[in-house]
């Protein structure tokens, strides 16, 4: 598990940590992505919004390595990358919290945080007997939770199913933040939560950003987006049509762009040479 990134030194602040150019994905006759661009800047929370069927979940899957686009390419720190599987994306430091959480309810918090990436004991026990270093994993799991302000040192051995929905979401986010080196993608993290728990998850998202990670937040909830996002990527008809800042825009405007009532501002829509002119933090 990496130490939390406190800043993004070593990377040019002008280069998006993760970007996509001209992504196309077709499913039979349906074009889910129609030349979509995407830019995520270091240390920002970027909300991705769009009507149902706008193709935002296809975009997210392409970024997370869950699908391979038909054409177009991905860039990390300006260098072209391609993800054949979620594991590829993960190797590049991108962690995704899928909508259905992907935690195993009967397993405890530590086991879930380390699931698929367990650490073994040193020496003979680990190398030959393949023994898990449970103690070290518990310590690290507790540290991962504490890093995000989740104070539960005693309960990392608690089965996830004994937690509330918000607590489970916190575990899933903590797992992503703990393993991520660059980007955390959150797919509808508050969809199943009540108001209070949603607020707590938003607070958690801010803490992930404070650790220097860039966050992609897919959400339908405008008030939440305006509360936590630095920029809003608006998706419509399979492509990015606009990027706005919450301070300079209203929810009504965002919804109008989403539904096509207002034109977008994305230069790529007008076939302009560069998509770099969009609003930046």
């Amino acid at each position: 598990m990496n130490a939390p990134n406190t800043n993004t030194t070593g990377h040019d602040e002008r280069t998006p940590v993760l970007a996509a150019r001209g992504l196309v994905k077709r499913y039979g006759h349906v074009t889910a992505l129609n030349g979509s661009d995407f830019d995520l800047w270091p240390g920002e929370v970027l909300a991705v919004v769009g009507d149902n069927g706008a193709g935002k979940s296809t975009l997210i899957k392409a970024l997370a390595g869950a699908i391979v686009p038909d054409s177009g390419h991905l860039l990390m720190d300006g260098e072209q990358v391609s993800f054949k599987s979620p594991l590829d994306a993960r190797r590049h430091g991108i962690e995704t919290v899928f909508q259905d959480l992907a935690v195993a309810p009967a397993l405890d918090i530590t086991t879930n945080i380390f699931l698929g990436r367990e650490s073994r004991s040193r020496g003979f026990l680990g190398a030959v007997l393949r023994r898990l270093d449970k103690k070290a994993m518990r310590t690290e799991a507790a540290a991962a939770l504490t890093n995000l302000g989740i104070t539960t040192a005693r309960s990392v051995t608690q089965p996830v199913e004994t937690l509330s929905g918000g607590q489970r979401q916190a575990v899933a986010v903590a797992r992503a933040a703990a393993w991520s080196k660059r980007v955390v993608i959150l797919d509808e993290p508050t969809a199943a939560l009540g108001v209070r728990e949603s607020g707590q998850v938003l607070e958690l998202i801010r803490r992930v950003r404070e650790q220097g990670l860039a966050v992609v937040l897919i959400s339908h909830n405008m008030p939440q987006i305006f509360e936590v996002a630095d920029r809003i990527h608006i998706h419509r008809l399979g492509r990015r049509v606009a990027v706005v800042r919450p301070q300079e825009s209203t929810m009504a405007e965002v919804v109008s762009i989403m539904t096509g009532a207002l034109p977008g501002n994305d230069s790529s829509v007008a076939e302009a040479p560069s998509a770099q002119q969009v609003a930046r933090p």
Partner: peptide
Amino acid sequence: TQTAWGTHVFAVGNDPNAARLVGI
């Protein structure tokens, strides 16, 4: 109880989709 294989057996039995998504 003490190896990653065992943990994965429990994970697969408990929630195969969650197991798949974490790369098991």
